[in-house]
Amino acid sequence: MVENKSVKSKIRVAVIYLIVLLLGLSCFLPLWNVVAISFSKSAAVSANRVNFWPVDFTLAAYKKILDDAQFWRSFVISVIRVVIALALNLILVVPMAYPLTKNSKEFKGRNIYMNLLIFAMLFSGGMIPSYILVKNLGLINSIWALILPGALPIFDVILLMNFFLGNPKSLEEAAIIDGAGPFQILLKILVPCSKSCLATISLFSIVGSWNDFYSGLIYIQKPVNYPIMTYIQSLSVDIQEMLRSGQTSQSLANITELSNRNLNAAKIVVAVIPLLMIYPFLQKYLVTGIVVGSVKE
């Protein structure tokens, strides 16, 4: 009876390991497929002979990227955009979060500001009025069209406000007695105490800016000014059309663009590398982000 039970539980554990392994592979293999394609000869890719291991291993696609001026232009545009957007996010969010921790007696007007923020989270003008605004500001085709509309992430303001509220009040009171003003309190006490929250906000800002193709699609009409993800999206359009229309591999192989599949795969791999570089940090602050994300009030 007892032995029977332990055999049963061993089988159960084995099945659980197997399912988890399969789910892990289901996430890994499709991504690995792109890597395998990027290292394969284009003929092998066109013939759909590449699954999860490079066929006729070659670095040709990566060598080609080195000379691709537009790829690097878009890459640099995205890097600049990430840096400016991050700086702007922090410059706007950090000072706003502090006064909002006060009650309406300590800071007259606090509730008006708060309600303006909340209403903007609840309701938006929508895609088209935003586009017309950016157009009227003369920002179309400019990098600022990618940065400015998202410069104030309201959710981050509330996140940081709640994080500040979690600090002991005595810390602030002691500083006030020592003669510190609001700016000193914010910069010398609250900011150093909130590193994990600020790290979370920063990392999510970086990932969001890097991955965003939507702003580029809507606000950038000159392909030379595309950020990296919009650029990559624009590449795949031709091939997507062919794949979707369901042509057979024979007729596809005749089309020259298809020989670019390994090149495009290589571009995708290079475009993802910056994210992989910050991924260890992301994982570290993952839980912080989620835990402060659902606020208890």
């Binding site: 497929n33 991955n211 993800m229 999206q233």
Partner: peptide, 13 residues
């Protein structure tokens, strides 16, 4: 953490 631009290529492949 990957953009749908990237994942769409993955899904297509």
């Amino acid at each position: 953490f990957l953009s749908w631009v990237v994942l769409a290529a993955v899904v297509m492949n």
